[in-house]
Design a protein around this nucleic acid. Structure first.
Lengths: 343, 343
DNA sequence: CCTGTTAAAGTTAAGGATAAATTCACTAAT
DNA sequence: ATTAGTGAATTTATCCTTAACTTTAACAGG
């Protein structure tokens, strides 16, 4: 038996031969080009279906100089917020006829660089990116910027970037979270922050500071714990905080996972949340509904942000002149009150 | 100012012209083909770097009939197990020089069909798939099977499929989980199952039945609750169970999320876990460590399964004759004992 | 001195689809 | 009857890279 290889796929030439037509007529007919006689078009489409023709997207991309592929760079697909964003992106992308190629930077700059290069070589029509926590220099995105290939950052975005960005209102989120803790009676509020090179955490910290200032609570940088916001890092920091002599009465954590870590460590030490310490997280992860006490957090819809990001990108790709594209779109945030800050 | 379009990218012809060489020499030099003089090769590579040349992957794919892209179909990227698997797949794929295009079926057969078609048109070199819960007929994968394009299923796989599969030992998992409950003293054990059209849930149920049988506990199909295993569906089913007159003393849930839902509903009704009812989940999701009491569960590494799946696929793509490829690889499972089944 | 060999190129032809330019048949208008 | 115009198709060139085939020059051996 002869082994079939991948080469004997049906092409438009096969259809053309079968119908005694030219390849370009077939091509046009399949695209419902009005230059083609209705009868011919139907004949072609019928034959294509019969022969099991599937267009070769690679050949089409090469010729059209358009791949209908969008590159997506995320630090990790397993982060709840990111996986929600990916869902939003996928759904919207499919609606617009684009496929998504995903790359994970694993929070490293080196990998991020490599991915940008790969996507450039792939000739993606546009790039969607969430930068790694450690990216401060964005020069490796230059191939896209210099060649005018649409590029949209969301969630974590470069500072002073002249391009398109989609973010949550992190300052407001930090402010609201901290203000809520104060209103619930907290006087000594600790803060878990991520890398301050990252706009997100900078803004959340700034919001935290601003709320303290409003209520005349002096800022104390001893209360700010900067780490990578994983469960383990949070447990570590929590031990430090809870074994100190001046234990705080509130914590605003820049993500939910490390707030969860804090609550678990507090429970281990029989320190009552919310009675002795009140806690606010960030993102409204699934875990915030699972931990007990349930976690007060700042809602930020990954799904919607992903959707908005790709919508913006697609408008840029299609050079949509009619609709005005917002350059720096900011999503509203909302405080979700749960048990971890009950009075 | 003239607008730059995406077309004026550097090609091998530009390099060839600049050096007064032919395009094929440049092509060869860039691929370190031994037919090219070392001096020439260095000259070409230097010039390529200088001119900012990036190979056009689309043209190369068309010519080589190989895209180095692998398609991935998952029900949802946001499921913890799936996102872990994606991480494993991504890392390994990168190592082997492949890019991953991800599509979500959203647990619908229609979307799954469409994705298969898209990936076929994309001329992916291979396809990795986790079927939707509702897929019973796998004919839509035929384009791949008939054209001998490597196809590997993992986690959820078709029954009686003659191709390559990677699964966890779901029967053993179901058996071990149920046996553990029995050994902890449970006599009346309920089971949350997913769609029984899906091998996973069938096997876990079979394991559950087998354990009951071993300990001479009669199987009672009133105790099996089939739903889609989301938090909401679990809450609904839990209400039913817990408000009935014959409340069980144990629950084996086919995933962690619905076990979490059950524990939450039990807490709401002041039914103590594990004292009154013991609970075992499946997958060792993050949530199993967050819920209190912490959830006993069956470990199944998504990361490793993803890695194994893509390794198998890559071997198939490369027609690796030397290494024997296992057709139906089964991962060991392990019971992780936590507080939800304490005696 | 000529043939044979080899290294190091160059030329040409896919790969499959499509846009642009061209041809052809036929109708309408002068 | 001749020209212009139109609808419907065909031909050709192109996208960029690479594999297959050819050429060229240099040199060794009889």
């Amino acid at each position: 038996m002869k082994e079939r290889n991948n080469t004997n796929k049906i092409t438009i030439y096969d259809i053309a031969n079968a119908l005694n037509l030219s390849a370009s007529t077939v091509s046009r007919a399949l695209q419902n080009n009005p230059l083609i006689n209705e009868e011919t078009r139907e004949k072609v489409q019928l034959m294509a279906a019969e022969m099991g023709y599937v267009p070769n997207w690679i050949a089409s991309s090469l010729r059209k100089k358009r791949s209908n592929i969008i590159g997506l760079i995320v630090p990790r697909t397993s982060m709840y917020f990111q996986s929600q964003a990916i869902s939003g992106i996928q759904h919207a992308a499919h609606k617009y006829g684009f496929s998504i190629v995903i790359g994970q930077s694993d929070e490293t700059v080196a990998m991020e660089k490599e991915l940008v290069h790969t996507f450039y070589s792939l000739r993606v029509d546009g790039l969607l990116a969430v930068s790694s926590m450690f990216t401060t220099n964005f020069d490796h995105f230059n191939p896209f910027i210099k060649n005018n290939i649409p590029l949209v950052f969301y969630d974590r975005v470069p500072e002073d970037f002249s391009g398109y960005t989609i973010t949550g209102d992190d300052f407001k989120g930090g402010f609201t979270a901290t203000e809520h803790l104060i209103q619930q009676g907290c006087k000594r509020i600790a803060h878990f922050s991520g890398q301050l090179t990252c706009n997100l955490y900078q803004q959340r910290l700034a919001g935290y500071k601003s709320a303290l200032e409003k209520y005349n609570i002096p800022f104390n940088d001893q209360l700010v714990y900067t780490h990578n916001l994983t469960l383990d890092a949070a447990l570590q920091a929590s031990k430090e905080i809870l074994s100190g002599d001046q234990v705080p009465d509130g914590l605003f954590s820049a993500n939910d996972m490390s707030a969860v870590g804090f609550i678990q460590e507090a429970r281990r030490r029989n320190i009552a949340v919310p009675e002795q310490i009140k806690v606010v997280g960030y993102s409204n992860d699934l875990s915030s509904r699972i931990i007990s006490p349930s976690l007060t957090t700042v809602e930020q819809s990954g799904y919607k942000m992903g959707e908005k990001a790709i919508e913006t990108l697609v408008q840029l790709i299609n050079k949509d002149e009619k609709t005005r594209i917002t350059k720096n779109y900011v999503f509203e945030v909302e405080l979700i009150q749960r048990d971890s800050t009950r009075k």
